[in-house]
């Protein structure tokens, strides 16, 4: 019986962790390659979750169907946020305070998004009550929610597609060129700002997927956005600052730590344990657990 509970907890942790891994992937894509630092993707995810909630409650659209509408919308949202708000900081160097400026602007936008959610949907906890929310698959004594399986599957799909795009397509090649050497890339005729904007748009769309899965497994409230942002960043830091594979493992690890803490100890301390772990990691391996190269 004891063992079953443990395995159950581990599977739950992986399911929760896949959401953090998705968010971490969104951050790592723009941070690891293009040195764009964003602090609003958690809020974007929650905004997408609320839109899914709205569509489900008024029109009865399934959250997965509404993704078809939401993904392009958030792609263009990210695209224009990058072109309008982030462009002035793209030519700054790191020591000139590039990250600080980017953090503050994106955080300001995130705060506006959160305030808008507060105004429209108020602070009460909301829930998307789809019929398959509590559906589980059972193997022997272990039951796994179907949503968790779907989120892990979508994580794998997104990772594979991203890798394919980065390695094989023209867009991916110019993207990598920009990340290696900005000036030379611009000399060969690549539009640097456009590549950055597209990358930001893609990462916003990934945040939408994360937000939808979060809404299907948890209750949503506007204030959760900043928390999600920080958990995504924890995944990025543990994963070694922007390697895509490392971030996914780190995100799953974050989820595991949380669920194991709730299982063995007090659930209220799960975030504390996570961040204590992070501090210990910073002492022993400042470069992250799965360092790239």
């Amino acid at each position: 019986m004891e063992l079953t509970g443990l395995i159950q907890t581990i599977f739950g942790g992986i399911g929760v962790g896949s959401i953090y891994a998705l968010l971490g992937l969104a951050f790592a894509l723009v941070f690891g390659r293009l040195k764009i630092c964003s602090y609003m993707h958690g809020d974007l995810a929650i905004l997408a979750a609320y839109m899914g909630f709205f569509l489900f409650n008024t029109l009865g659209v399934d959250p997965f169907l509404s993704l078809i509408v939401l993904l392009p919308i958030f792609f263009f949202l990210g695209y224009y946020i990058q072109t309008i708000f982030m462009k002035p900081f793209m030519s700054m160097e790191v020591w000139q305070g590039r990250y600080q400026a980017q953090i503050m602007v994106t955080w300001g936008i995130g705060m506006c998004i959160m305030a808008a959610e507060f105004m429209i949907w108020s602070g009460t906890y909301r829930i998307i009550s789809v019929p398959y929310r509590n559906t589980t698959l059972a193997f022997a004594n272990i039951t796994i929610p179907i949503v968790h399986i779907l989120s892990v599957a979508s994580l794998v799909v997104i990772y594979t597609v991203l890798n394919y795009v980065l390695k094989k397509t023209d867009l991916g090649i110019s993207f990598r060129a920009c990340s290696v050497d900005r000036v030379t890339a611009m000399l060969t005729g690549i539009n640097y700002q456009r590549i950055c904007a597209i990358a930001f748009g893609i990462s916003s769309s990934i945040a939408v997927v994360a937000g939808t899965f979060y809404a299907l497994t948890n209750q949503i409230t506007p204030a959760i956005g900043l928390e999600l942002t920080f958990k995504g960043w924890v995944a990025v830091i543990i994963g070694g600052m922007g390697s895509l594979g490392g971030v996914i493992l780190a995100g799953l690890l974050v989820g595991l730590v949380e669920s194991l803490t709730s299982y063995f100890w007090i659930p209220a301390l799960k975030e504390a344990v996570l961040f204590v772990g992070l501090l210990i990691l910073l002492i022993t391996r400042p470069g992250g657990l799965f360092k790239s190269r």
Binding site: F230, V234, A268, L269, A272, F275, L278, L279, L282, I283
Partner: peptide, 29 residues
């Protein structure tokens, strides 16, 4: 400062945010 100042930039930011959460949850429980 011993663990925190080993990193710069936003790992420092995330670390300080985490410190806030840790101390708050310890006080709460």
């Amino acid at each position: 400062s011993y663990p925190l100042l080993r990193v710069q930039g936003f790992p420092f930011l995330v670390g300080t945010y985490g410190l806030g959460i840790v101390v708050k949850s310890i006080v709460v429980v």
